[in-house]
């Protein structure tokens, strides 16, 4: 068995990284910047940049490298005012919900929620969606956003308080 390679210049490894990291990067960028089309373009760019610098990047560092590069690219776009859409609305899908408490009335609420999350401040929206839609733990989110777990708990609390008010008014 070959040992873990010390860079990501091997195509099969590069592809594995993409299949693993692109989906989570996509949610993260979408939640943060609310522009799915640009998020996907930027993921593509970030992986191209990773490949060009593949000799310098250890596989274990690839993830944080990609997050850095893609966020920087997004900020550049924002500077140039290229991000026009800035709108997040998730889809709803009630087919594979295992929770027996999920009733018909929750479907309607879920649809309200899909619109209401767009009105949350950036920090609260990221935390809420990463946890509730992507199933990431508070610890993972804290590391990702470079904040404390306590801060994640706070943002989650604020998000819920706000969502309750918004959904009541829809």
């Amino acid at each position: 068995m070959p040992k873990e390679s010390n860079n990501v210049c091997e195509e099969s490894l590069f592809e594995q990284l993409f299949m693993k990291l692109a989906p989570e990067l996509r949610s993260f960028l979408y939640y943060k910047f609310r522009d799915l089309e640009h998020a996907e373009d930027i993921i593509q760019e970030a992986f191209v940049i990773l490949w060009k610098n593949c000799l310098k990047v250890l596989p274990s560092m690839a993830k944080s490298y990609l997050y850095k590069v893609s966020q920087n690219q997004f900020l550049k776009l924002l500077d140039k005012d290229k991000v026009r859409q800035k709108h997040l609305e998730l889809q709803t899908d009630f087919n594979n919900i295992e929770d027996p408490d999920f009733e018909l009335r929750h479907q309607e609420l879920s649809q309200q929620l899909s619109k209401a999350i767009d009105q949350l401040p950036d920090g609260q929206r990221e935390v809420f969606l990463l946890n509730r839609v992507d199933g990431r733990t508070y610890k993972e989110i804290a590391e990702q956003l470079e904040i404390s777990v306590k801060a994640v708990e706070k943002r989650m609390s604020q998000a819920l308080i706000k969502l309750r008010v918004i959904c009541k008014n829809i």
């Binding site: 879920s110 999350i117 839609v133």
Partner: peptide, 24 residues
Amino acid sequence: LDLLIASKGLKLPPYDAKAHFEKV
């Protein structure tokens, strides 16, 4: 609690990572 339960119905738009990798 209703909000938490309702959040289980939220989904991201579908994503074809394989096709995206081809573009890369």
